[in-house]
Structure formats: structure tokens, C-alpha cells
Amino acid sequence: MFSIEHEFDTTVITLVDEGAAPLQEDVIINAFEDCITINQFDTRLEEMRTITLSMAQLRDLGAALNLPEGVYTRLPVGKGS
């Protein structure tokens, strides 16, 4: 299950782990104009953990999900196809 909320300066996506145990804590993704933050509560440390991705890293992640194993370099925007 997931939810999408649009706020003033961000889009918030919350991913809820459903199914058989053990379940993971919710993942909260904040999409800002210049970066993406991914938050998840760490039960071992009892604190929220945050990862920040640049828009370029997000594009690379999206591409990587559909590619075979290997090392890749993206062409700059507007170069090649």
C-alpha cells in the first residue's frame, strides 16, 4: 500500500510494507524541486534515518532498475539518444 500527498513545496509518498512478517517500517519519500529524501525509522537506534538523492542520482536509479549487471555512465542531457 502507498499514499501520495501534495504539499506546498514537496510531494510526499509513503510506502507501507504489507504481507507476511517480518515487516519493515514505512518508507517516506519527499520529492522536492532539487532533491529527493528517503526516510525510514530505524528500530535498532530508535531514530529516523534520512538519505538524500540528487535529481541526477534519482535518474540513475530509475535507469538502473531496468538494466543488466554492469557499470554505466549517462550522457549529459541533450547529448546522444
Rank of each mutant, 00 (worst) to 15 (best):
M1E: 07
M1G: 15
S3K: 07
I4L: 04
I4K: 00
E5W: 06
H6L: 03
H6P: 07
E7W: 14
V12Y: 01
V12M: 02
V12L: 02
I13D: 00
T14E: 01
T14Q: 05
T14F: 05
T14H: 04
L15D: 02
V16S: 13
D17F: 08
D17C: 02
E18V: 13
G19H: 11
A21Y: 15
L23N: 12
L23E: 10
L23A: 04
L23D: 02
Q24W: 01
Q24Y: 09
E25C: 03
E25I: 01
D26V: 06
V27N: 03
V27H: 03
V27T: 07
I28Q: 09
I28V: 13
I28F: 06
N30S: 13
F32A: 05
F32E: 03
E33K: 15
C35W: 09
I36A: 00
T37G: 02
T37D: 00
T37M: 04
I38W: 02
N39Q: 14
N39P: 01
Q40N: 03
F41H: 11
F41Q: 03
D42W: 09
D42I: 00
T43D: 15
T43R: 15
T43H: 10
R44P: 08
L45Y: 06
L45F: 12
E46Y: 01
E46H: 02
E47S: 11
E47Q: 12
E47M: 09
M48T: 07
M48A: 05
R49W: 08
T50W: 00
T50M: 08
T52V: 09
T52Y: 00
S54F: 09
M55H: 14
M55L: 15
Q57I: 05
Q57E: 15
L58R: 02
R59Y: 12
R59D: 11
D60N: 09
A64E: 08
L65V: 07
L65F: 12
N66P: 10
N66Q: 14
N66E: 13
N66C: 12
L67V: 05
P68S: 06
E69V: 15
E69R: 13
G70Q: 00
Y72R: 10
Y72S: 05
T73W: 11
T73L: 13
T73Y: 05
T73D: 10
T73R: 06
R74H: 06
R74Q: 07
L75V: 07
P76L: 09
V77Q: 13
V77S: 12
G78A: 08
G78E: 11
K79I: 14
K79H: 11
G80P: 01
G80N: 05
